[in-house]
């Protein structure tokens, strides 16, 4: 196969960027999308050019490192698939493919297709955990967890933190990512003590990071390689509203002067 690529090249965070055209020749349909880029990069280097920078690591769809906009679609045309698991057989000979980085204020470009997703880590820092210091845990079977709760919790926990939801959202909202973590922990008995505090803090951080709000476009769910449901966004909103309403009661009722 012969493919024309239009790739976003940007030398550094503050450098201007633009789409640059490359020819990918001898592309095998069995190649993964990133292997196709590897081959293009090898050729670029042989010509003395600087290769295209893109994030990747596991190449099996689980680490969440990879991810680019492929023809305007986050992670490309195949549903429920990361960029690294997309194969060239999804394209046809002679195609032109536009490749861009995730775009959001909260995800500044570092170089070419590589962006900084540190905002996601900071959202987790704000409350995306259960405070259970090592050593104090009781037996794992002490608290039974209904299978249904464990299963939905796992559905949410499957998030790989790739950022495609933000990239695909017309509002650049991180609602799907944030809600998935709130749901993962909030659905389990172990997550109850911090449930509402967690919702408040994580949403506040999401706003601080300059993500947009959710107006339920639903694009995130479609782009998500783990097909995480926007149902979790509703759940987050519910927890958040409840949390905001009850948080103050605690303060005023607590009698701290």
């Amino acid at each position: 196969m012969q493919i024309t690529l239009k790739v976003w090249r940007q030398a550094g965070p503050d450098a201007p960027g633009s789409l640059v055209e490359y020819q990918a020749t001898d592309v095998s349909p069995e190649m993964s999308f990133l292997e196709m880029l590897d081959v293009v990069n090898e050729r670029l280097m042989q010509k003395g050019d600087v290769p295209i920078a893109f994030d990747h690591d596991c190449r099996e769809g689980i680490c969440g490192s990879c991810g680019v906009m492929i023809d305007g679609v986050a992670h490309g045309p195949m549903k429920g698939t990361t960029t690294c698991q997309l194969h060239m057989r999804s394209f046809t000979d002679g195609d032109t493919i536009v490749i861009e980085p995730w775009r959001a204020k909260a995800f500044p470009v570092i170089k070419d297709l590589v962006v900084n997703r540190g905002a996601f880590d900071r959202i987790i820092q704000a409350g995306g955990y259960i405070s259970a210091a090592t050593g104090g845990a009781q037996d794992g079977n002490m608290i039974p967890v209904p299978k249904a709760a464990a299963d939905s919790s796992m559905d949410a926990a499957a998030c790989i933190g790739c950022g495609a939801c933000v990239a695909a959202c017309p509002n650049a909202s991180a609602s799907l990512f944030t809600s998935a973590k709130i749901a993962h922990l909030g659905l389990l008995p172990q997550g109850q003590p911090e449930r509402y505090r967690r919702a408040l803090k994580m949403v506040a951080q999401m706003d601080i990071e300059d993500f947009g709000g959710c107006t339920l476009f639903g694009e995130c769910q479609e782009a998500c390689p783990k097909e995480i449901s926007i149902d979790f966004i509703s759940r987050m909103n519910r927890d958040f509203v409840y949390a905001s309403a009850t948080a103050v009661e605690q303060k005023s009722g607590g009698g701290h002067g």
Binding site: M69, G72, V98, P170, G218, E219, Q221
Partner: peptide, 9 residues
């Protein structure tokens, strides 16, 4: 984006 293709919205 230079190109963005809405999918389900």
């Amino acid at each position: 984006y230079v190109l963005r293709q809405p999918q389900v919205s």
